[in-house]
Nucleic acid binder design. Structure first.
Lengths: 227, 227
DNA sequence: CCCCAATTGCTAAATAGTTATCAATCAGTT
DNA sequence: AACTGATTGATAACTATTTAGCAATTGGGG
């Protein structure tokens, strides 16, 4: 689908990309390390240099609702800069991650000098909102099986053709808002239909495209998420 | 509400507000009239001058999933200008409505001249995304009763203290993603608890603040959850 | 002012999802 | 190679929700 990538960096000119990189501090995080917490108010923009970050919300009971993954070039924390809102999500490193961290003041200054930057941030935000709205809609319309497939596809976004999703089934279940038992049934079905292979803490999608086709056939709204 | 209003106009200087108003065409819509359809691609920004607009999605089967209401000063259609994405929602007039309609070209030109405008659009978008994320989260965590109250409160946002929600129960049910029967049970409960009064095509909230307090008490998830 | 289509209220049977278990499997550690 | 905590797989009883009716109520149009 047209519409563009939600990665900030892809909407910037090489020159501006370089300026941003230059003005930021690179911070490295090890697997599992927390990058930001829900509720934090310290403002700043983060752009992923290398690796993948988990985005989600930890419940008081320890459940983790995964909202998605961010890959290289994608940013987060924008709204801590432009609004006085606290962070909505916890972000943690999924494997080793490097982040360009930009201090709020420096970023707003850059925006004043380079309106192009402001436009790019706006564009990625709008694209994200769009994705979110479509997601919200499908959550209400689609049955669990379709929703599960949709979530797995979006989580495998950063993988290659043969995707591995490294997560516990219970986390997936929380993300979908269902119990582990219900998810288990759906996953077993999907396995017998040869769409996925279940492992210990890992789900393999042997053929993403096949899965996408299946979903599109069910869900006559075409997918927003595109590699 | 901390964090700011999602209305574009409140984030603009009086001067800029005037310029925007001046550069736009005012279009009037009668009750029920369609303003924009999901899937439309013709770009342009709309700002509500007077009245209230319905935002939602019509399903193929005629169901209408209401996503919310927009009041004076709020805008929509931003992303048709900055991305190539089609509209996600159908927007229709709820009572008589007047809209400032701004052609895409004119708006982008204005943005280039006045970066303040770009910032304001970004801010409202970010605030909306924030609201959306919190909504998505509560959809997964809260039981139907709480979700219903939340939706009704958000729909009555533009009413006074004694709010009237003019809608069919079946539309509400679709918006919540449940059947009319389930919603009916919840509504009956809420009525016996004297939080709402059910009528024909209308639900009255005699005391918004009481309802808000009830929701806050139930929803002890403060904005900031700690692990 | 009465009629009629739309909407609400209600019920029952069927389905989907949850909680609570417990056994089996896995991967990392000793 | 055996141990151990974490995770998956499976089952049963229970609860919530849906579907499919039909009756009662409503409000606008003729």
């Amino acid at each position: 689908m047209q519409g563009g990538s939600p990665a900030l960096m892809t909407h910037l000119s090489p020159a501006l990309r370089q300026t941003l990189t230059y003005q930021s501090n690179v911070i490295k995080y090890a697997d599992g390390q927390l990058i930001h917490s829900r509720g934090d108010i310290k403002p700043g923009l983060s752009i992923i240099k290398k690796g993948v970050a988990n985005v989600g919300v930890y419940g008081v009971d320890g459940t983790f609702i995964m909202a998605g993954l961010l890959g290289a070039g994608e940013c987060f924390g924008e709204f801590t800069i432009f609004t006085e809102l606290p962070r909505t999500h916890d972000v943690s490193a999924n494997g080793d991650v490097e982040i360009h961290q930009l201090e709020a003041g420096r970023f707003t200054k850059l925006c004043d000098e380079e309106p192009e930057l402001l436009k790019a941030v706006l564009k990625t935000t709008l694209i994200r909102t769009h994705i979110l709205l479509e997601l919200l809609d499908s959550m209400r319309r689609l049955p669990l099986k379709e929703r599960t497939v949709k979530l797995m596809l979006s989580l495998s976004y950063h993988s290659g053709r043969i995707a591995q999703i490294r997560t516990r089934q219970s986390d997936l279940a929380d993300s979908l808002g269902v119990s582990r038992v219900s998810l288990g049934k759906v996953l077993k079905q999907l396995q017998t239909e040869e769409m996925i292979i279940l492992g210990y803490r890992v789900i393999t999608i042997p053929d993403r495209e096949k899965m996408e086709r299946w979903l599109e056939a069910k869900n006559n709204t075409p997918l927003i998420i595109k590699k």
